[in-house]
Write a protein that binds this DNA or RNA. Structure first.
Lengths: 140, 140
DNA sequence: ATGGGTGCAAAATGTTTGCAAGTCC
DNA sequence: GGACTTGCAAACATTTTGCACCCAT
C-alpha cells in the first residue's frame, strides 16, 4: 500500500479529506527515521512547498495522531515534572489527567540495555500509560 | 541525614552556597510525592516565602539536577518529536544531543504492567539514556 | 570582600488559536 | 455547495535570560 493510499484510507475512516499538505507531511514523516520535530518537518518541506506553514504542520501532525498514523515520542508543552528520587525507578502516567505515580520494581530495574549502533547506554526508565482511578470512573 | 545537611553537602561538592530558597525548594520537592512542576512548587511555597520568584524555582531545580538531587520525569520545552511507527517500540535517547533511535526488542514489549493503586495500565515504553557515537567522542 | 544567587521584567521557545480565503469531495 | 483546511498573525504557556541588588561564605 502506498503512503497515499494508507493516508487516504485512514482519513476517510474519520470522514476527513486528503490534502496535499497532509500527504507531504505524512510522506516526510515516514521517510525520516530520526523522529523529526514539527520544525524539522517544516524545514524539510519548505523547499518543495514554500507556502506550507508551520501551523499546518502542527495541525497535520495532530490529525495524523488522531487517525492513528503517528505518535509523539516525548511529551512536551506539558510542564516539566520533577522528582527528588534520583535512584532508578519507573512511572505510571495517567493519560487522562497527567498524574504520575512512581513505580518501584526490581524486575524492571534489571533490564539490560539493548545494542544500538554507536550508542553507549546506561540508565533506563519504563513508562506505563493508562488511566488512574479517578479518570477511569470519569470516562464511563 | 537531614535535608539541610544533604543539600549543603551536595552543593559544597560543587562549591555552591546553600541559600534559603534552595533549601525551601528542595524540602518542598522531597515532601511532595506527586512529581510537582516548577509552577506547583512555587505555588506551594509562596505562602511561606512570598518573595520567592518562579524564575528562582526554575534555576534552583536546574541546580538540584546539577548536583544530583533531582531529576526531570518528562522532557518538555524540548520540541515534540514525532514518529510514524505506531506499533510498540522503545527508544534510545542521547543525553548529549537529544538524538532518538528506535529500539525494537520483543523482550521489552512483553513486560507486564505492575500493579499501581487504582491505575489501569496498558501500553508501556522503555527509554534508555546514554550517549550516541558522536557525543561519546565529543565528551573525551 | 566577592562570587554567586535572587527577583523582576523582558525575551525566547514551542505550540495553539481565530479568522478570512482557499481546497476537497 | 458545504464542510473542512490552510496560512497568517496574534495569543499562549513554559522556560530562559539580562541585569541591578543582595546574601552566604
Amino acid at each position: 500500500m502506498t503512503p497515499t493510499q494508507k493516508l487516504r484510507e485512514a482519513l476517510a475512516r474519520k470522514g476527513l479529506p486528503l490534502t496535499q499538505q497532509r500527504l507531504a507531511v505524512f510522506e516526510a514523516l515516514e521517510k525520516a527515521k530520526d523522529h523529526p520535530s514539527a520544525e524539522a518537518l517544516h524545514r524539510a518541506l519548505r523547499g518543495k512547498y514554500p507556502s506550507l506553514s508551520l501551523a499546518t504542520v502542527y495541525k497535520t501532525l495532530q490529525t495524523l495522531k488522531d487517525v492513528g498514523l503517528a505518535q509523539v515520542v516525548n511529551a512536551p508543552h506539558a510542564e516539566a515534572r520533577f522528582d527528588a528520587i534520583t535512584g532508578v525507578h519507573h512511572h505510571a502516567i495517567c493519560r487522562g489527567c497527567g498524574r504520575i505515580e512512581d513505580v518501584f520494581d526490581a524486575r524492571l530495574d534489571r533490564l539490560s540495555a539493548p545494542r544500538v549502533k554507536g550508542f553507549e547506554l546506561g540508565a533506563h526508565s519504563v513508562h506505563f500509560y493508562g488511566l488512574c482511578g479517578r479518570c477511569k470512573t470519569k470516562k464511563l
